[in-house]
Each structure stands twice: as C-alpha cells, then as structure tokens.
C-alpha cells in the first residue's frame, strides 16, 4: 500500500510517500496510523495531539475507523488551508 504525507507532516516524517505491505493485524486507518507512528516518532507526536491529523483513503476523506486494504492509498495531512 502507498502512504502519503503532506505539508508539515511530510517534513516531520522526512518522506512524501512510502510503500509498505499492510502489517498483520492492522484493519483500520487508526491502527495503521499508530503503527506508522512507531516508524516516525514525530508523526506519533502529531497523532497524539488530537484533531490535528486528517486522513484520506484513496483520495476521499475518511474517519479513523475506516477499513484499510493492501491496495489502498492512504494520506495523512494537517487541516487544509487553501483558498
């Protein structure tokens, strides 16, 4: 699966995107985010501050309880500031 990070989350993780195999026992976006936090401590810090990290599954906004599959593209980013 492809994981993407944007804005300051990209800077904190040090990567814009990474390919990983869906880890065993991971079924939801929240579980995946926690697993990724072990790889990227500064991502874990952002997750710990509730309400800061948004998520899109295959380019559609989802809540943390959304189910993930190995073929998905999951993106994590801060609240948007366009316009």
């Amino acid at each position: 699966m492809k994981i993407r990070y944007f804005a300051w989350l990209r800077q904190r993780t040090g990567c814009g995107e990474e390919e990983i195999a869906l880890p065993d026992g991971i079924a939801t976006v929240a579980e995946l985010a926690a697993w990724l936090g072990e790889r990227h401590p500064r991502f874990a810090e952002a997750l710990a501050a509730r309400g800061i990290v948004r998520c899109a599954l295959n380019q559609v906004y989802v809540e943390p309880d959304a189910a993930v599959r190995d073929e998905d593209e999951i993106a994590f980013f801060p609240p948007v500031t366009g316009g």
Binding site: F6, A7, W8, A56, Y61, A75, F77, P78, P79, V80, T81, G82, G83
Partner: peptide
C-alpha cells in the same frame, strides 16, 4: 470559496523574515 477553503487539500507555507511557517487552519473559516 467557503467550502473550498475547508475541504480542498491545499496547505500554505509562508516565507517571512523569520523563516518558513505553515499557516494554521482558522476557526472562522
């Protein structure tokens, strides 16, 4: 424009005399 500002995935990073800074989302938006 109201919905675009809170839904379209854009992020602003400003350059000031003190360096770069990501703009925070605003409650009034």
């Amino acid at each position: 424009i109201d919905w675009l500002k809170t839904r379209a995935p854009f992020w602003k990073c400003e350059e000031t005399d003190h360096g770069e800074c990501w703009v925070e989302a605003r409650e009034d938006d």
